[in-house]
């Protein structure tokens, strides 16, 4: 039963991720990326990580993608013919890297498909709710919770400084 939900979600997510890479216009890529984030939120719900699914939609599909859209429209990016020009100098290197990537993917599929995984653990009903994740976050992981706040503060200041100053 869960497979029937998982396969369409996974196929749509992978297809939309390919759409991000192979779309000619940046706006099209951004729209595909939003769709992929929503598909991944569905996968998270399937994994009973409800809180993370909501965060995925709020932060990724909401905030981050709005920022992307804003910058794309601000810079008024048009479709770019030069984007798909193959650089002759790098053809062999690229082919080698692609072959290596396919090999790594094959190896991962091979290992994970052959491994003996137990059935999913028996989890309580409230697994992945705000209460459970919040309790873990504010008891065992207080320091890792504070570090990203410093990071976000630094990012905020850095973004303002970078976008404001006239570099020339």
């Amino acid at each position: 039963m869960e497979l029937l939900i998982f396969y369409p979600l996974a196929l749509v997510s992978v297809g939309l991720a390919m759409g991000v890479v192979f779309n000619k216009s940046p706006i099209g890529s951004a729209v595909c990326l939003i769709g992929m984030m929503l598909g991944l939120a569905g996968v998270f719900v399937l994994l009973q990580a409800h809180f993370l699914a909501i965060l995925q939609i709020l932060i990724y599909a909401g905030a981050i993608m709005v920022l992307f859209m804003f910058v794309i429209m601000l810079l008024n990016l048009k479709d770019d013919d030069k984007v798909w020009k193959v650089r002759e100098r790098n053809v062999w290197l690229s082919s080698l890297a692609g072959a290596l990537m396919v090999g790594v993917l094959y190896k991962i599929v091979n290992i994970t498909a052959g491994a003996e995984f137990n059935a999913p653990a028996k989890v309580p009903d409230e697994f992945g709710t705000v209460e459970m994740v919040g309790t873990a976050l504010f008891t065992d992981f207080v320091l890792p919770f504070e570090v990203p706040s410093i990071l976000l503060l630094a990012a905020m200041v850095g973004a303002v400084v970078l976008a404001k100053s006239n570099v020339d």
């Binding site: 905020m156 850095g158 973004a159």
Partner: peptide, 9 residues
């Protein structure tokens, strides 16, 4: 989130 804000800046 931090990476995107800095990167786009």
């Amino acid at each position: 989130a931090a990476e995107v804000s800095i990167g786009l800046a």
